[in-house]
Design a protein around this nucleic acid. Structure first.
Length: 569
RNA sequence: CGGGGAGUAGUUCAGUUGGCUAGAAUGCUGCGUUUGGGACGCAGAGGUCGCAGGUUCAAGUCCUGUCUCCCCGACCA
């Protein structure tokens, strides 16, 4: 490709960008923002995207077959699975004007994912045990009505995703395939150069499943997720489910007398701990929840938050929401903000986090408006519960309960996920198979996603220096950036360009006549192709064509044959 | 969903208490000089000041509404 024929231009840095990765993608002419959360992939960017998707495709072809489903489907598909009203990122498409509506006023869903479409499709073709298992995938554009798109391609309203769906006769078969998919994913990240930075991470199953799902998380300062890694066995947990044990803090050796403290209007841990002159970790935070089984009370140490997913599991409930003000007042006998664990009614179930167990002389709400209790102690002021639980949102510095070792906590971006869906969707569309024994049985299903446009964003965040991108060879838009300096060298430049291109090397030749040497060098660094070749009077005098890898400073002078040999590998 | 900032040339921005033909830098076009790290001279093109309404002799500037973008937090399959 000749640079002058390329659509899109490099830009000077004349404003601040979210991150370096975003800066280089935009300034290098890879992407162009159309609106919040939607980008045009310019020719350079679309080449990278296609290379990423081709790697994904090659690995997926080993475990499934490719198809392509429509982006728009009748709303019926989503109503059938009961997700039309509940998925809060769903887009709907309707005719835009009178003329269009007159022709067809139907409403469609713009798909954010395709479980709801593939399942009824699979049901049409595969109903015998002889057809199972099978796996299909697609690489397609998805739409999600995100509240706040951010950080370039990391979170957008329109994005590219590979989604794979597998169907099985049994849970065992599904679980076996789950491991196969995991291996395929690891191959993908290895080929993209992200392997050593990407972690297989346990996460919540979300709407999909009550069990955990798994995510692949790439370590990234600007990522949105917080990951807790057990260093001794490399096990990783997403913050949303990470089991955690608080570090033991120094406590008083003697119990002080309990006292009721008047703190008019003092609500919230920060304000309260300042008011009482104690550390937040010496206070407790008590929240009242309503569930389908009734009212629940949960309490964690003041420097923690309640993890609702953990509480749901411990309490064995499916629905959980913070109680209304009226309910709180009824349960605690006080206005909101003064709930505590001493003297609660007997008929509410109380769950207490294990971070509170070792505390001596701690604070808890007074269950009386404007009052707090200070110097509360187990055994004397209230009975120890039969069991303490882990109800807290893990934070940096916490310990892994199994081994009591400190987690390594780091920020990361989710680059893939795998869900054991079990029969959630197959049940919804009444999809069963006839087994060898002639009986109908449920079909088990799994779903596996990789965000390919987000991967492009993640790679941009990982592979750059202070001058620009440094693309891994596997996804670089071109392999060689060719620069010819000075009038005399242009003919040589053309010769190299044509020879290398003929040899099958992807070359981009900066054939601009007016651009200065400095401009060309800077653009080459910004665009970040793996090899830079310079031809000039100087290089010819030194014995040929100058070659420098983007990753290093070493410069070699080669003849044309050696160039081909080096770059066509 | 809560809080904050901003829409003026392709881009990044300036534009004072309302007042002459709306500016700069950069980018772009032409001519010329340059050519190993974003060179220089000269000439030029480029704007419905986000949109709608209002106040006024007069609105980029004041008022109302609206749309959009950006940032922080919450949420997130």
């Amino acid at each position: 490709m000749r640079y002058t024929k390329l659509f899109g231009k490099t830009l000077k840095a004349d404003k601040e960008f979210d991150t370096k990765g975003v800066e280089y993608l935009i300034r290098g002419g890879f992407i162009d923002q159309v609106m919040a959360g939607a980008y045009t992939f310019l020719p350079l960017g679309v080449r990278v995207l296609h290379k990423i998707e081709q790697i994904v495709r090659e690995e997926m072809d080993k475990i499934g077959v490719e198809l392509l489903m429509p982006s728009i489907v009748p709303t019926e598909y989503w109503k059938r699975t009961n997700r039309f009203d509940s998925v809060d990122v769903l887009f709907k498409v309707v005719g835009a004007n009178e003329g269009s509506l007159k022709k067809n006023d139907a409403e469609y869903v713009l798909n954010p994912t395709h479980e709801d479409v593939i399942t009824p499709t699979a049901k049409k073709f595969n109903f015998s045990y002889k057809d199972l298992p099978f796996a299909v995938y697609q690489i397609q554009t998805k739409f999600r009505n995100e509240e706040r798109p951010k950080t370039g391609l990391l979170r957008t309203r329109e994005f590219r995703m590979k989604d794979l769906y597998s169907f099985h006769k049994s849970v065992e078969d599904l679980k076996a395939f789950y491991e196969v998919a995991r291996e395929a994913y690891i191959q993908v990240y290895n080929r993209l150069g992200l392997g050593d930075q990407t972690y297989y991470t346990a996460a919540s199953g979300g709407d999909f499943t009550e069990e955990y799902s798994h995510e692949f998380q790439t370590r990234l300062e600007t990522g949105e997720d917080l990951i807790f890694r057990v260093k001794s066995n490399n096990q990783c947990f997403n913050k949303e489910i990470a089991p955690s044990k608080a570090v033991a803090l120094e406590q008083d050796s003697e119990m002080k007398p309990m006292e009721e403290v008047l703190g008019k209007g003092i609500i919230g841990v920060d304000e309260l701990s300042k008011f009482m002159g104690i550390k937040p970790s010496q206070t407790t935070k008590t929240l009242i929840f309503e569930s389908e089984k009734g009212i629940l009370v949960a309490s964690v140490r003041g420097d923690y938050d309640v993890n609702e997913l953990k509480l749901k599991k411990v309490a064995g409930v499916k629905e959980l929401k913070l109680a209304s003000d009226e309910t709180v007042e009824k349960v605690t006998g006080a206005k909101v903000g003064y709930a505590g664990i001493v003297n609660l009614p007997n008929d509410v179930e109380v769950f207490i986090d294990d971070s509170i167990e070792p505390l001596i002389n701690f604070e808890t709400g007074g269950n009386r408006t404007d009052y707090h209790l200070a110097n509360v102690n187990w055994g004397r002021d209230l009975q120890k519960p039969k069991k303490f639980h882990d109800l807290k949102v893990a934070k940096s510095g916490d310990l892994y309960p199994e081994t009591s070792e400190e987690y390594e906590a780091f920020k990361a971006s989710e680059v893939g996920n795998i869900f054991p869906l079990m029969t959630k969707f197959t049940d919804a569309v009444d999809y069963q198979f006839v087994d060898a024994d002639g009986k109908s049985k449920p079909v088990y299903m799994g779903s596996y996603g990789i965000g390919t446009s987000r991967l492009l964003g993640v790679i941009a965040e990982k592979f750059h220096d202070d001058k620009g991108m440094i693309w891994p060879e596997s996804v670089a838009p071109y392999k060689v950036h060719l620069i010819a300096l000075g009038e005399n060298a242009q003919e040589e430049g053309l010769k190299i360009y044509e020879t290398l291109t003929k040899a099958g090397v992807e070359v981009m030749w900066d054939d601009r006549g007016g651009a200065s040497a400095g401009e060309k060098f800077n653009d080459a660094d910004l665009i970040g192709l793996p090899y830079r070749i310079v031809v000039s009077q100087k290089s010819l005098e030194k014995g040929g064509y100058e070659v420098k890898k983007r990753t290093g400073e070493e410069i070699k002078y080669l003849n044309l044959n050696s160039l081909i040999e080096l770059t066509s590998r």
